[in-house]
Design a binder for these strands. Sequence first.
DNA 1: ATGTCC
Length: 472
Amino acid sequence: MDLVEETPYRFRIDRHDPMRVPGVVFASRDLMPDLGTDKSLAQVANVAALPGIVAASYAMPDLHWGYGFPIGGVAATDVAADGVVSPGGVGFDISCGVRLLAADLDLAGLRPVLDPLMDGLDVAIPRGMGKGAVWQLTGRAQLDEVLRGGSRYAVEQGHGVERDLHRCEDYGAVSEADPGQVSGRAVERGQGQVGSLGSGNHFLEVQAVDQVYDERAATAFGLRTGQVCVMIHCGSRGMGHQICTDHVRVMETVMPRYGITVPDRQLACAPVSSPEGRGYLGAMAAAANYARANRQLLTESARRVFDRVTGCRLDLVYDISHNLAKIETHGVDGGRRELCVHRKGATRALPSGHPDLPDDLRAVGQPVLIPGSMGTPSYVLTGVPDAPAFASTCHGAGRTQSRKQATTSIRGQDLRRQLEAHNIAVRGASWRGLAEEKPEAYKDINAVVDAAEGAGLCRRVARLVPVGVVKG
DNA sequence: ATGTCC
């Protein structure tokens, strides 16, 4: 397999059997995974073999190895041409995503109360494996409301304000959720986790706007230099994980019936229009709403702590997923086609003028929220017109080391000391979990964003620096 | 990512 450099930030994997389309990797040479030792580029080629795939199998600059599909992958299939949907193209953490809140407070005003604020968040943000959650559901009926209503249901129940929904992707809820496609085991796992961070790379971070690159867009997003922000990164917990597991199993068994063969069994899939394809999309949408309600409830917890300690408000800038499949209409070969766009570790990035944007953002574009690794900057970007890859960009720094590998060279205690020496407060859940997230285990977020912008996928709006991190 | 293998 050869990588052909087309431009400084765009590489092509030429089509070879059984690929139906080429692979396209948006990255610099420095960010490119090693062809000899890393399997993620082979995964880009594998995805290109999916039935109905159009244009190319795309990879973002934060590309790394994942289950079947690479993380940082984008693949669109043509619904009318027997295109497939694959749970592996969304990932186990369905609708994992990022939410950014802006405080009416500057960093200088926060410093004197940072410790009590972090202590308050430490108590208010449930996190870690098998821990409790903000919301105690009354039973299956209420969980179904969460699965159908997402952030909208949380707001209806008093956890947030109507304005929040205007700053959420899909206005807070995906409409096609089908709780009937959610197994009893998924329900059982999801019941006690609504309003919890989870673990791994999930976090709630207090940040400050460090630099603004685009004043007009930043102002429209509600951001200014020196401003305190809160970023929340979490997903659908055991609910999404179980749904992915359940539907991969179903698709493995029905693929022969549809005459589908794939180069890797982890690419299990079914036609979008088949009962199994529709079934997965209904369950996926339910998990997506679960993830959004999750972020809405954690928002309310953070707001209560901010109000008590600082007296300040937190306004929602935006909430966007980076693990989702969506039915979208795009131009393909001069015509408009209905596509199933899989984004796995890739963020939708709508340009200005897009009809799906709320009125107050349409003139500037969608806020694209990109968390860095722990202790490093995060970015706010926006979409650009006529971008490749179906209006998608990167989702974060992207791992270069496995979790196990990361823990061999540093202890969590030492990492916390390092971060605090850089004036970053830390409230962890486990020492091991902290060590797994050391910044050296990730690519350089600045280089990833440079490559994403250089490739024409998005445009920088603002940079945020960490002030205090509540780690899952 | 994940009751890190029902």
